[in-house]
Amino acid sequence: MFHYEFMIIAFVVATMLALVFPLLGGPVVYKKLSSSGDALAHSSLAGIAIGLVSGLNPMLISIITCVVSFLIIGVLRRKFGKHAEIGVVVVLSGAIALSGILSGYAKAANFDSYLFGSILLLSYEEVYVVAGLLLVTLLFSIFFYQRQLHCLYSEEEAHISGIKTGWLDLLHSLLFALAVAIGSKAVGALVVSSMVVLPTASALLLRKGYCFTLFASLGYSLLAMLGGIVASYYLDWKPGATSAGIAVSALLITLIVRALVTFFKKKALASRG
């Protein structure tokens, strides 16, 4: 499998993205804005359609549309208060409309490559972009680890203790939007939205603390992303879609194992009592 250069590149990029997605997606899940990954993925598609139609760089436009969409979600989230998810649906609907209409004017083959990704067809330039994204994400996640945790628990209390919560939120939003836009090219816009949420969702099922959940989500993410590449090689399946399939299966298996463990623990306690 590693005789081919494109497979090595695919493995390296998949590993890097597998680390980026849960590091930036985890906080989104904790904020209860899981569906915003979906909204951003569609915004990135809208950006790509704008780029393809206008002749501008699709990747650049998709980054801009992702950032703008996440900022709009942020503003709507504050406006709707407890019904924050309405903001996500508004952006999602707008992005679907825009990308649907514009994609009719773009070359179908180009647009499809962004829908399902093309991790086996990446250039060195794109590898460097993903490496840059990973570096910035790692720096952000390490330096802002404690601050972000405090902010996620209570924005108000974090603000009172002197943390610049607005800036932190903006910085995270920018990075998250970047990750979705860049990730869309590799694994496909439709798969990105599941890869930013599912590893954290599975890790949360393990019922451990924040730090453990973060590391466990990296494990789930690596399993899904690398599993997708291996399956694409041996079974000729689409790598992005297979990764999403593995992520969903891992979540379901975790759920079943957890239910079984709880059942047998209760049984053991009852027989002792």
């Binding site: 945790l149 628990y153 203790s161 002197g162 943390i163 603390g209």
Partner: peptide, 17 residues
């Protein structure tokens, strides 16, 4: 909010500096 008691108490130390 999924965090441990220890992690919650630790948050109280994180602030301006």
């Amino acid at each position: 909010f999924q965090c441990t008691v220890e992690e919650l108490v630790g948050m109280g130390l994180i602030g301006r500096k």
